[in-house]
Amino acid sequence: MNIIVCIKQVPDTSEVSIDPETNTIVREGVPAIINPFDENAIEQAVQMVEEHGGKVTVLSMGPPQAEAALREALAMGADEAILVSDRCFAASDTLATSYVLSTAIREIGDYDLIFCGKQAFDGDTAQVPPGIAEHLGIPQVTFAIGIEVDGRKVRVRRLLEDEFETVEVKMPALISVVKQINEPRRPGIKAKLAAKKKEVKVWDASCIDADACLCGFDGSPTRVVRTFAPSRNTEGKKYEGEPKEVATAVVEALIAEKII
């Protein structure tokens, strides 16, 4: 079974702050990491290939320094790594990004499953995985918490807001995973040293036959009008008294606010 895992290098959000003057993310000195949900996707792919055989290919679109994220994925057990990197990909929105990744996946060709993290920590859109599946014309299952292979079929347990849903899908398919699906391994020093020696292929737009009109700024219908840090409303209301009375008062207040 051949699995392609799409990953993104993101700033370590636990160390990110917003500049209150400019409302932009302060990136200076912030370490870059693999998007945490993508680590779950890598772990899942590595485990499934360990069980069923085949290979794991990690794929990322990004600037040349995203190679570090791919090497980390190799240390976690991926077999091959490809970085798609080209100046004309810069400023891609989720539509253009999913287009570029889908053309790279067509170039890789031989795959049974594509895994993604459910969303990226920085953009938080969760739009790229469905976008890739649409561009490729294959089925997609999002928010997977469990994946079981049965011949050419895959049974996927989805984590929804209040319930689980199990769906069956035929390969090839794209699956995005939630963090509860597994505990990503911590690669040892030996694996890291070995990963340093492995090749990370770098493909530009011409390698993947990407249509320049569909990449980067030109291929991105999204326009960012303004970014801002949400103001925090810390004002709360405290109800005191007997539990029964308090409960009644809270419910009435929620009804009055049209929340319930």
Binding site: R185, R186, G188, I189, K190, A191
Partner: peptide
């Protein structure tokens, strides 16, 4: 266990 995992 962490030292083991890390090959240290």
């Amino acid at each position: 266990e962490i030292l083991r995992e890390m090959d240290l």
